[in-house]
């Protein structure tokens, strides 16, 4: 965990409402792993007060990329950064995906902006085969650079299957040996919940990247609990944001 002042190298609107931010981060970039996140101060004053958490989207040389959706005031301000601006970033935070487990095929399941951590995950897994299932509202919300073997679903059918990403996954997984795959999921909570049920019922290894409102992002405020199956709370920022699907109650 480091606090780093990073220079904005580029910021572009890559799709309707979706921005790609590239910052120079000589320190955090050498440590960050897929599934970890950074906590970004989007303004220089007290409004908004808290940092905003974003997954590490991609790392290349000494640069980190963030892919984000303009949601409210914080992300709006972030989208207005200019090349050369300095942003104050804390990272890398939390625990990333576990890719050292015994599996042959990684099945990446993304819902909407939940695709953000997957390009780095894809880059990290050199000796595994990868299939990606990517669901979004419509084709205008899809940003699929640095992903492999993508199957799409959209609510309006503008690209891929008309329907949700879990249906898409169910159709396509029939041909795979469930013992040899591991699912990695990131997206809105209803999607994660459906994915959790599917993976647990079929006894498939599965990790989910969760979100929570956060004040600190590194375990001191206790603001981001998730209930575990043993009736305790874990902290999404510190014990997660990635959790085994068997461990948590969504």
């Amino acid at each position: 965990m480091i606090i780093e002042k990073c220079i904005v190298q580029s910021i572009e609107k890559v799709k309707s409402n979706i921005f790609l931010l590239k910052v120079l981060s000589p320190n955090i970039s050498t440590k960050g792993k897929a599934g970890q996140f950074c906590n970004i101060k989007v303004s220089e004053n007290d409004f908004p007060l808290l940092r905003r958490p974003f997954s590490i989207h991609y790392i290349e040389n000494e640069s980190i990329y963030f892919l984000f959706d303009v949601h409210g005031e914080g992300t709006n301000l972030l989208s207005q950064k200019k090349i050369g601006d300095i942003v104050d970033i804390i990272g890398p935070l939390g625990n990333g995906f576990n890719i050292n487990e015994d599996f042959e095929t990684a099945v990446l399941v993304a819902g909407g902006i939940g695709v953000a951590p997957f390009p780095l995950l894809t880059k990290s897994m050199v000796n595994k085969s990868i299939i990606t299932f990517y669901g979004a509202r419509n084709s205008e919300y899809i940003y699929d650079k640095n992903l492999l073997n993508i199957n799409y679903s959209t609510d309006d059918g503008s690209i891929g299957l008309k329907g949700n990403v879990i249906d898409l996954l169910k159709i396509n997984l029939k041909n795979l040996d469930k013992q040899k795959i591991k699912i990695f999921g990131c997206g809105p909570s209803p999607m994660l919940k459906a994915l959790q049920i599917f993976a647990n019922e079929n006894n498939i290894k599965c990790e989910l990247a969760l979100e929570s409102v956060m004040a600190c992002g590194f375990g001191i405020c206790q603001g981001c609990p998730i209930e575990t199956v043993d009736n305790n709370y874990k902290l999404i920022c510190k014990d997660g944001p990635v959790f085994d699907a068997k461990e948590i109650i969504l």
């Binding site: 007290d46 007060l49 808290l50 409102v213 206790q222």
Partner: peptide, 14 residues
Amino acid sequence: GNPPQRIVETPSGM
């Protein structure tokens, strides 16, 4: 502790 959601940001506060 309490169930989530435990925190919310407010103008210049939480």
